[in-house]
Structure formats: C-alpha cells, structure tokens
Design a binder for these strands. Structure first.
Length: 440
RNA sequence: GGGCGCGUAGCUCAGUUGGCAGAGCAACUGGCUUUUAACCAGUAGGUCCCAGGUUCGAGCCCUGGCGCGCUCACCA
C-alpha cells in the first residue's frame, strides 16, 4: 500500500503510524524486529511523508486493524510540515488557498468533492438514459447572450476582436435544437464579472439542457426526477439537511404562482405600475432611475422569495422579464417559465423556449435598447436567423450545479463546494512593463 | 465598491492598564514493543500582515495600505 503518514507514535522499538490514501486510513505498525534494514533510518520519517508499505494485515492487542510492515519505502518527502493534528486546518483562507492540504487534513472536505464528482456522474447517466446527448459549445463568444450579467472580456489577436467569456451557453444549445439534435445538454463553466459572495463565484458550473417537443412542464418533471435521484444516490435519502432545516427532495415539488404570490404579499397586480412603484417606495427599494420591470422583480424578491423554503417551482413569470421564453397562451402577459428554489436560493430556471424569430428579434431589440450603458449589448442576429429555419417547440432548463451541491452536501458557502474558489492572489503581479531589469 | 470583524511560531491559539514574545501540536535530541490527539525529559523555532505616527517605551493606541471572513449592492 502507499499513502501519507498522518502521525507517528513512537515507542522505541515499535512505532504506530496511521497512513491514509483516498480510500481511508489504516494503522501501520513498524517493529524493529521486522524491519532490520529500515530501522536505522526511522528518525527520518515525519508526519506528512508519502510512504510505500509492504506487510501483513493483523491486529494489535486492542483489536485495531494494523498492517505490520515488513518493508518501508519513502516515496516522497514532505518538506513542509503538516497542519496541527487535532484541529487540522481551520482558517478558511488557508483552507481555500491550500486545498491540496485541506483535502487530506480535514476529513469532511474530501467527502464533499467525492459527492460533487458523483453528482456529475449521476446527472450524466440520468440524462443519457433519457436519450440526451452531451455537447460542448463555445466558451469564447463574439456576442453576449442568454443572460444578463457583466462579462469578462478578452481579445483575439489574430482576428483583432474582443471576445466575451460566456455568461450562458443557452443560445448555442438552442441552435443545436434547430440542428435536429432534439435532446442536448452541456455541463460547463459560465463566467460572470460580478461580485463574490457566499453563493457567487466568478466562474461557476451550469447544467443546461434542451428537449424538442417539450415545454416547461416537462422541465419540471426532469428537475424533480433529477433532484430526487441526486439526493438518493448521494445521501441515501430524499431528506436533505441544509442550514438547520430539512428539505424533502421527493417529487412532486410544490408549485406557486409568481403573480398570485405577488398579489398576496403586496396587495396589487404585478403590472399595476403606479401601485407597484408605491409599494417599492414603502419597501425602500425605489430608485427613480430604475426600469419598471426590474423594480417589480425587486419587489417580488423582497416580499416573496424570502418566504420560499422549497423545493418549490415558482411559475407564471411576467413575460417582460423573460426575453427568451414563450408567452403563455392563456395570458399573454405571462411566460411559460419557472424557477426552482431551495433554502432561499435559486437553483434552476426553465422555460418553454421562444421559437418565433420575429418575436425573438423584437424582444432582443427591446432588451438592447433598455440595457445598462456600461454593458455592451448587441442583438444576436445569427441566433434569430437560426430560428428562421424553424426551431421545434422546446423546453429548456438551467441548473446551478454549485448551489445544488451546497444544498446536497450541507455546505454554507459556494467556496466549500469549489476545489479552488476565486481568491485574490497573495502577491500582486508586477505590472507588465518589461523594462528589462529582471534577473533569472 | 460600502459597512462590520479578523491578521501573533509551520498549524491551533493566548497575550492583563502601553512595560522582557507565550502555550499546545508539528520539528529536532534522548528514553520507552501495543498506542489511538500515546507518554516522559530536553532543544530550537518570531518582519507580532505592511508603512507611517503618538510615546521614555507599541503585539496592544492613532492614520493609511494589503489580505481574508461576514454582510449590503450588482448577479445566478
């Protein structure tokens, strides 16, 4: 066996050392009588060293399973000392910066990332079982689209143009639906140039899936089935503990109406602009410059979202805040869209995809016209052209994998489910002036 | 970006009213053949985050900066 020495208990002619590898820990017993060749070097062995052990599995007098070593090889020396053996690493900064230590020094950390890996595998199997095809679409986008967020901008030298790291893969995936692939999904990183928080990281993992001949109701089924299966396969139960509360991931999930809940909490219709603006003032959300629909949604988030425990589907979104969603045939003010919430966090967003090219063009133009002047905005005419070739009725779903993992593993911060969360570098990089004074 | 808090040995942390820089673990030396955070004796280990200031004297007080955490805003 090979592993890392986690400690040494030296009795003179006998040493006990717990050794860990990715499968766990086992005690190794090093005896002078069985290790004549190695024994003189025993003082060179330190906690943290990587060793190869040959020996026989047995027990100590107290019954502890122990590998009685007949050969010891130092595979790699740990020059840096391991963290304190009882407390491990507790400083969050050190843990995030030195995840390579955290992973073996803190017992529960590895478990989170094993579950993360398992979750991705479960999702892939679940979707492949339903005939979905995993695809990869561009990360470098010439035009921002599919969401509203500030992008990271980069530059392509040969083409002499700016490119944006994608904020969402949505528009490319739907082109594939036009292309006849019918059921596609992508699991990948999105990049948003916004603030960091306990539930925001500048790069985060998103699952997006699209299914032809489906709508947002079908996306609800998929969400329920996938969430339930994830809970069962990761935790062995559909009861999920998060921040001291228990959530049942057993289908079906609760459904609430955006507009109905809006009315209940605020005493006015979502599209009654004077009344909603008045309400916003009461809630101290009012900024004169705010565009109405943004303000309306702020009121919703303030008054309704905090009441949502979940898992719950919020449906009947105003179409005005859903530029890529099909309007409801029953009420043209509403969109066939839902968001799924658990523990106060939005985990997913889905709709019946808008597939009318003229309508899509009109909504894009509206969006660009009203957009924040700081963020570059441009109509994705190529996407509209794709729709002109005919996109079948399609349901689409996006799930924030990191947040879902937070819930499923009971972690407080998105950083605790990211192996290497975004951190400011410890030493500021020198500005690239290349004034030649460097020595090698 | 705003507010609050934190920053002392490799790690986990004390540090009194402003008066010699401390403990445990880890490391090193010695002892011990059944421990489970082993134990016993000893040694070594410091840019008290950085830069200024106040003071006879600063880890401690003041100002500025850096980093991190929480939170608010933007966002998912």
């Amino acid at each position: 066996m090979a592993g890392r020495v986690m400690g040494l208990r030296d009795f003179g002619k006998l040493i006990f050392a717990p050794v860990r590898d990715r499968s766990g820990r086992i005690q190794v017993g090093l005896q002078k009588g069985k290790l004549a060749d190695w024994w003189p070097d025993r003082k060179l062995l330190d906690g943290g060293d990587l060793v190869g052990i040959t020996g026989e599995l047995g027990h100590t007098q107290k019954g502890e399973p122990t590998v009685w070593a007949t050969d010891v090889q130092l595979l790699s020396k740990a020059v840096a000392p391991p963290p304190e053996k009882w407390h491990g690493l507790s400083d969050k900064e050190t843990r995030y910066r030195r995840r390579y230590v955290d992973l073996w020094a803190s017992d529960d950390v590895l478990d989170v990332f094993l579950k993360r890996s398992k979750a991705l595998s479960v999702i892939r199997h679940f979707l492949e079982d339903q005939g979905y095809l995993e695809v990869e679409t561009p990360i470098l986008h010439p035009i921002m689209g599919g969401a509203t967020a500030k992008p990271f901008v980069t530059k392509h030298n040969a083409l002499g143009m700016d490119l944006f790291l994608r904020i969402a893969p949505e528009l490319y995936l739907k082109r594939l639906i036009v292309g006849g692939l019918e059921r596609v999904f992508e699991i990948g990183r999105n990049f948003r140039n916004e603030g960091l928080s306990i539930r925001h990281n500048p790069e985060f993992t998103m699952l997006e899936l699209y299914e032809a001949q489906a709508d947002y109701r079908r996306m609800m089924e998929i969400t329920e089935q996938m969430f339930e299966r994830l809970a069962r396969e990761l935790n062995g139960t559909t009861q999920v503990e998060f921040r001291g509360e228990t959530y049942s991931f057993e289908a079906p999930f609760e459904r609430v109406s955006y507009t109905q809940r809006f009315r209940e909490e605020n005493g006015c219709e979502f599209d009654d602009e004077p009344a909603v603006r008045e309400r916003a003032k009461e809630l101290r959300l009012d900024h004169e410059s705010d565009e109405y629909w943004k303000l309306m949604n702020d009121v919703f988030e303030e008054t309704v979202e905090s009441t949502l425990r979940g898992p719950v589907f919020v449906t009947d979104y105003p179409v005005a805040i859903c530029p890529l969603a099909k309007a409801s045939p029953d009420d043209p003010r509403l969109a066939e869209r839902f968001e799924v919430f658990v523990g106060g966090m939005e985990l997913g967003n889905a709709f019946s995809e808008l597939n009318d090219p003229a309508e899509q063009l009109r909504r894009f133009e509206e969006q660009v016209a009203s957009k924040d002047p700081e963020t570059p905005g441009e109509v994705d005419l190529d996407y509209v052209e794709a729709l002109e070739y005919g996109m079948p009725p399609t349901g689409g779903l996006g799930v924030g994998i990191d947040r879902l993992l937070m819930i499923l593993t009971g972690q407080e911060s998105i950083r605790d489910v990211l192996l290497f969360p975004a951190m400011r570098p410890l030493v500021q990089a020198e500005s690239d002036d290349d004034d030649g004074g460097e020595e090698e």
